[in-house]
């Protein structure tokens, strides 16, 4: 066998082992991008103090705008709910029911203090339905009768 084919086998072996370690072993379980509200509920003392990310859905009906850019809402994964206080302007996509990832710390007072709010949308992209398209001309006409 030629020398370069030995290199081929060696490279493929390293690649396969590397992939197996990342995909097949416990390493992947240690890679946590965000905690769910349920993870925080079950983490006990580990949840407090450190800067972590919390991910979940903005609970419908929980969003309250405070003074300035203060924002209050609840993040839920349908098993547990965490109250979040966020300062910083939320992205335009922020709304009730959408996915969010917030970065900050869990406080002893029982809420999550965040200074970085990210919106996480799903893989669906929809054209507006025919009836939902806003027709500016119709809108102008509709206000004509207002006195």
């Amino acid at each position: 066998m030629s020398r370069s084919r030995i290199f081929l086998l060696a490279a493929l072996a390293i690649a396969a082992i590397g992939f197996a370690v990342i995909a097949g072993t416990g390493i992947s379980k240690n890679l946590v991008y965000y905690w769910s509200p349920n993870d925080i509920a079950h983490a006990g003392d580990k949840a407090y103090g450190a800067t972590i990310r919390l991910g979940g859905q903005v609970a419908p009906g929980s969003v309250h705008m405070g003074n300035g850019s203060m924002l209050d809402f609840e993040v839920t994964d349908r098993r547990a709910t965490v109250h979040v206080k966020s300062n910083g302007v939320p992205p335009q996509m922020f709304r009730e029911g959408i996915g969010v990832v917030v970065e900050g710390t869990m406080t002893r007072a029982g809420y999550f203090q965040s200074d970085r709010l990210m919106v996480s949308h799903n893989n669906e992209y929809r054209a507006p339905k025919a009836g939902e398209q806003i027709d500016a001309k119709k809108l102008i006409k509709s206000t004509k009768g207002i006195e």
């Binding site: 992947s28 890679l31 991008y33 965000y34």
Partner: peptide, 26 residues
């Protein structure tokens, strides 16, 4: 060639990253 073969291991990881781990990307 050897470096490229090893680097390419990351390609399936890129593809499956959004399924294996929770992520910001959909």
């Amino acid at each position: 060639s050897v470096a490229t073969i090893i680097a390419a291991v990351d390609l399936p990881i890129v593809y499956f990253s959004v399924r294996w781990w929770n992520s910001l990307h959909q």
